[in-house]
Design a protein around this nucleic acid. Structure first.
Length: 216
DNA sequence: TTGTGTTTTATTGCCTCC
DNA sequence: GGAGGCAATAAAACACAA
């Protein structure tokens, strides 16, 4: 085929290939990319209708100098590309969401670790205080024997924990208040309060309070 | 220039719908 | 059963680094 005989449009190429009954040759040697204008028109149509009717495709093909089959294939491929892009986008969104969740988890984990440390320190303080209380009880018995003057041991703010009813409310947080920031503890424990009640000794005894939150 | 990866056009085979 | 859509794939065209 000389230059003078070269088909001028894709449509011509298709027509000639079909005429000579050689689709294979068209496939192998005559594949031509659509020009900018054709692509632009096809894109515009796709924006409004991704699955146009046969008639629309035929009209568009005529206007662009393409075979209706080519237009149909273009829309098919375009839908496939579009779907693939959409999937990619959704995957990225999910990935971002997953990463955010991971960050949140790490923050929560750190917070729980910090609370757990605070709880351990509290427990030590409490145990130390309980031992001293037992010792004091022994001493008091002796004192009572020696004297008629009885001093009731009702409250002990020594450990920063309220051990008795007080009209002033809970206000025994002493120098260790940095450790015993009860508000902070309460916040941290709010989620497990149903399982683990704030009750004197059992609160500090994890044998009576088995929450998965403490198991890091 | 060339090797390689990506994009685009087209085919094939299967499926669904009317 | 024919038309049209989709997924998978082939292969040409293109982009680009070395």
């Amino acid at each position: 085929m000389s230059m003078g005989e070269m088909p001028s449009t894709n449509s011509d190429i298709w027509a000639q290939s079909s005429l000579i009954g050689n689709i294979k040759k068209c496939k192998d040697n005559m594949r031509i990319r659509f020009n900018d204008e054709q692509i632009k028109s096809l894109e515009n149509m796709f924006e409004t209708e991704s699955r146009p009717e046969l008639r629309t495709k035929q009209q568009l093909a005529k206007r662009l100098g393409l075979q209706p089959r080519q237009v149909a294939i273009w829309f098919q491929n375009k839908r496939a590309r579009s779907k693939s892009k959409q999937l990619e986008l959704e995957y990225r969104m999910l990935q971002i969401s997953y990463d955010n969740l991971g960050s949140k988890y790490e923050l929560q984990k750190k917070e729980h670790e910090s609370l757990f440390i605070q709880l351990q320190r509290l427990r030590k303080l409490y145990e130390k205080g309980a031992n001293e209380e037992i010792q004091n009880e022994g001493n008091k018995v002796e004192i009572q024997v020696k004297s008629d003057k009885f001093v009731p041991e009702t409250c002990s703010p020594e450990f920063g924990l309220p051990l008795c009813e007080d009209s002033r409310g809970v206000d025994y947080l002493g120098p260790e208040s940095d450790i015993l920031d009860m508000a902070q503890i309460a916040d941290g424990l709010s989620g497990i309060e149903n399982e683990c009640r704030f009750e004197s000794r059992t609160f500090l005894d994890d044998s009576g309070c088995r929450s998965p939150l403490w198991e890091f």
